[in-house]
């Protein structure tokens, strides 16, 4: 299966977002975002295409939603400031030209909305696949909310996932449904913490 067919097949999965990247710039060629429900289907496609599994890992996006809201607010504030500035400039210009002042437009009613409560942030599971015959690194990403991080396991397709998923579970607490043996791999046997979560501190 060549790269294009693979891309089409992956893009055909429901709500999958496929992005082609410059390998020289980023180090991987295909970036696929999927909902957890589509993960097994995508991995099966890769397995059939003869890809080998490189690794599985996670990223904790704690504070992402808050940052997004803050960003949006900042953007809105900037827009408002720019509009006010523009209006002031227009008024000044009109004054200088001796033109009659335009009707004070009723100020746009922009109620300071109370900051919305940010939604629960996500944990992202990242899967890297590559080929032995030519370099074509494919990255699958799937997200699950931090309070219920659950992603289907792919152990039945790639046996290596047995350890990679255990490691990811150790570090992030992502539950891989169907794994069956999610005991700590690198952490102590009784570890109940997830050190790579952003809110973890020793």
């Amino acid at each position: 299966m060549d790269a294009d067919t693979l891309k089409q097949k992956l893009a055909a999965l429901p709500s999958a977002a496929v992005q082609e990247l410059d390998h020289a710039r980023r180090g991987f060629s295909l970036d696929v975002s999927l909902p957890p429900a589509q993960l097994v289907a995508a991995v099966t496609i890769l397995d059939e295409a003869g890809y080998f599994i490189e690794t599985i890992t996670g990223v904790d996006w704690l504070g992402e939603n808050a940052a997004r809201i803050k960003e949006a607010q900042a953007a809105a504030a900037a827009k408002k400031a720019a509009a006010a500035k523009k209006a002031a400039e227009a008024r000044k210009a009109a004054e200088e030209a001796g033109e009659p002042l335009p009707e004070e437009a009723a100020p746009e009613v922009e109620e300071e909305a109370p900051a919305p409560e940010p939604a629960v942030d996500d944990l992202e599971a990242i899967y890297d696949f590559n080929r032995y015959d030519r370099c074509h690194r494919v990255t699958l990403r799937t997200r699950a909310p931090r309070d219920k991080p659950s992603v289907p396991s792919i152990v039945h397709i790639y046996q290596a996932a047995h350890w990679h998923e255990r490691e990811t579970h150790d570090f992030f607490g992502i539950k891989f449904e169907g794994h069956g043996y999610l005991v700590p791999l690198l952490l102590p046997e009784d570890a109940d913490y997830h050190p790579l979560r952003k809110d973890y501190s020793a």
Binding site: G50, F52, I53, E54, Y132, D133, Y158, Q159, A160
Partner: peptide, 19 residues
Amino acid sequence: MCRKYGATGPVARGAGIDF
């Protein structure tokens, strides 16, 4: 087996994979 387990390096090359 190398492919399913993600083995690389001399382990893969010892299994006939030119990688």
